[in-house]
Computed example of a mutant assay.
Amino acid sequence: MSEINTPEGISSQLGQCLKAARQARGLTLKQVAERTGMALSTLSKVENGLMSLTYDKLLQLTSGLQMEIAELFNPLVGRLDQDRPVTARRSISRAGQGQVIATRFYTYTYQCTDLIGKRMVPIVAEVRARSLEEFGPLLRHAGEEYFLVTSGRVAVHTEFYAPEILDAGDGIYLDSTMGHAYLNAGDEPARGVCLCTSEAPDLYDQLRRIASRDSPAGD
């Protein structure tokens, strides 16, 4: 049995927390149903305190919404970031500074490498590969990213969309778990700034390992 009836207080709390979590993500009940594969009527009953869920359904719900299960029993859990103490961390990247990984087809210069545990990894990139054959396998890693072209033209290839051409000043935001590649689509050098973000604590190491696979020294 997927759903269970529980004491009114527990059902009411779960419903309130589900509603708070849904609204915090700007989702409708229909969108929650689509993301989780759960019936819209079931979700409506839960939000209204008329029904609770078994553990497997709670996991299905939280997995679909990419949230911690604790948030369904304490709405403050989803807002912990707002209450985090100010760390006052900062790092300045001067022109020409950064950790460089260079190959025949691209050069990545990682910025602000003195900070550890960053949620965002900023990279200055020069793209030289002009074909997928040169570039190699599409890149995939945790999180999401934004790539802003600063000079030249860049062709963005992804596994689910037709290629797009970006000129200087154009940018693209994409799901980094989707296969993707940036290629030089012009006659001049193509450069850009890429911002990668993820909840994974080892994102920086993941990105360096991926970039290093084609470096001459296999760094």
Rank of each mutant, 00 (worst) to 15 (best):
V156R: 00
G49D: 04
I101E: 04
S44G: 12
M38T: 03
T113F: 11
R119V: 11
E145W: 02
F135G: 02
Y161Q: 08
M51L: 11
G78N: 04
L139P: 03
D81F: 15
V154D: 00
F135Y: 12
A70C: 13
V77S: 10
D170H: 02
A168R: 02
R84G: 11
A181T: 01
R153N: 09
L76P: 08
S52Y: 02
L59E: 13
E159F: 02
L174H: 05
V77L: 14
G117H: 05
L115S: 09
A162F: 14
G179Y: 00
T42D: 10
G64K: 05
E164L: 03
L61T: 05
Q99K: 14
L76H: 15
T113P: 09
E68F: 05
L72G: 01
H157M: 01
E144K: 12
T158L: 00
G64T: 07
A95Q: 08
M38F: 05
E68Y: 08
M38G: 02
M178Q: 12
V156D: 00
F160V: 13
K57L: 08
Y110F: 10
L148P: 00
M67H: 07
G152E: 02
S91D: 15
V100M: 06
V156C: 00
R140E: 06
K118R: 14
T150V: 09
A125V: 07
E126D: 14
Y173M: 08
T54A: 15
V100L: 07
L59H: 12
R89T: 15
L58R: 06
S41R: 12
Q99N: 12
A88F: 12
L53W: 01
V86Q: 10
G169L: 09
P137N: 06
D83S: 10
V154Q: 00
Y110P: 01
F147Q: 00
L132W: 01
I123H: 03
D175N: 11
G78P: 04
S52H: 05
D83V: 06
D83F: 15
V124A: 10
Y161I: 04
R119I: 14
L148C: 05
Y55I: 15
T42Q: 07
I172Q: 00
G96I: 08
Q99Y: 14
G117P: 02
R130F: 06
L43S: 07
D170I: 01
H141P: 02
C112K: 14
T158M: 01
D167M: 04
Y161C: 05
T177W: 13
V121D: 12
M120P: 02
K118L: 08
F73R: 07
A95S: 14
N74S: 05
L53A: 03
S93D: 07
V121G: 06
D175C: 09
F105C: 11
G98Q: 02
E134W: 10
R128Q: 11
F105S: 14
L138S: 05
Q111T: 13
I116S: 12
R84A: 10
D170C: 06
